[in-house]
Amino acid sequence: MSDVRQLLGMKGASGTTTSIWKLRLQLMKPVTWIPLTWGVICGAAASGGYHWKLDHVLAAFVCMLMSGPLLAGFTQTINDFYDREIDAINEPYRPIPSGAIPLGQVKLQIWALLSTGLGVAYGLDIWAQHTIPVLFFLALGGSFLSFIYSAPPLKLKQNGWLGNYALGASYIALPWWAGQALFGYLTWSTALLTLIYSMAGLGIAVVNDFKSIEGDRALGLQSLPVLFGIKRASLISAGMIDLFQLAMVAVLIAIGQNFAAVLLVLLIVPQITFQDIWLLTDPIKFDVKYQASAQPFLVLGMLVTSLAVGHSSLTHVM
């Protein structure tokens, strides 16, 4: 089980492998691909233009491949490259700080994933017959955001608020935009909506900072647990997740999607319950249990919201 956790890129894992491909997969952290691929599904649902036919199914799959394994894999690999000193404190078993993979191989993987991801994005633009390569620009912008999140001198992750919001937007807004642009039109209204929704993603990102508090403090990274302490940071995390989902409830009511608003409220309630049981009790000890129990309700809420948006006028107003 520990080897599986390590292969998926989960924190707290241990174990060793000499397989170069297993090491490459560890760097890409497959567990992080799930929200990206789900975001594409939500964007496709919000577009109002997705249909259950072969070419649409294949295009959606390729878009999920681009967002998850390729560009999220790029993001995780470049983050590990620039975080090797922190990981030597927090997660010394990771491929780079353990010395299991040479830095030259890591750089090769970064460029291979980035170039392939951008190429796939452009191919999807051709399939969708875009006059402006929207998906390519989204992929390029997201990749640049990933770079400045991890790399100096900007290194957005040094700032707990800015870095976590960049992470939240990358996991919610960007794949949503990709899915919506692929099958319909990306409007200013839905772009703004998803950027607001990404504030809930900021709260989720904070959960990942608790186990890194020792290394972050040692190297001067101002994560929210470092800034506010574990108890206050857990309250901020829960508050951001709940508050901005409730903001989506208000939006759904405003656009006349009352049934979806009720469903979203019903999906928020168990999240609050699991926050009380796990997150607010001990976010370091119970972070995996909390995310495993609460996150399915959050992502289902995203789908409910996207389907409601797809049936509203928001996808047709520029």
Rank of each mutant, 00 (worst) to 15 (best):
P296T: 12
Q105S: 15
H316N: 14
D80A: 12
F274P: 09
K107N: 11
V251W: 04
L235H: 14
P270M: 04
A178F: 02
H316T: 14
L195F: 13
V288N: 14
A218G: 04
P30R: 06
I20H: 12
V251G: 02
H316K: 13
W21I: 10
L25D: 05
V134K: 05
W176E: 08
L167V: 15
W111I: 04
L25M: 14
R5S: 12
I96K: 03
L193M: 09
P35Y: 08
G49R: 03
L263I: 03
L174G: 09
Q291Y: 00
Q275E: 15
D282W: 03
A128R: 12
P133R: 06
L267G: 02
V309H: 09
S293M: 13
I86W: 03
C63E: 10
D287F: 12
A294G: 10
Q222P: 00
L113Q: 11
G141F: 10
L162W: 11
G9P: 11
Q105P: 03
F74W: 13
W188Y: 10
P270D: 12
T281G: 00
S115V: 14
L298S: 07
A151G: 08
C42H: 05
G239W: 03
L54C: 03
G123R: 05
A173H: 09
G68C: 13
G43I: 01
L227Q: 13
D209E: 15
M64Q: 14
M240A: 14
P97I: 05
H316S: 15
G119S: 06
T187M: 04
L246K: 02
Y82G: 06
T116K: 00
V120Y: 04
S47D: 11
F136M: 05
F297C: 05
A308G: 14
P225T: 08
V269Q: 00
V207C: 15
E214I: 08
G119A: 08
I89Q: 01
L186W: 06
M302G: 15
T131H: 13
L186P: 07
V309S: 11
L300N: 01
A166R: 00
L243F: 14
M1K: 01
D80H: 09
F144K: 00
V251L: 13
S223W: 03
I241K: 08
W176R: 01
S237C: 11
K11W: 10
G179F: 04
P92E: 10
W177D: 11
L118S: 08
F137C: 10
H311K: 14
P95T: 07
I96G: 07
A88C: 07
M28A: 13
Q129A: 14
L307K: 04
F144M: 07
G168S: 08
D287C: 09
T305C: 14
D80L: 03
D209R: 01
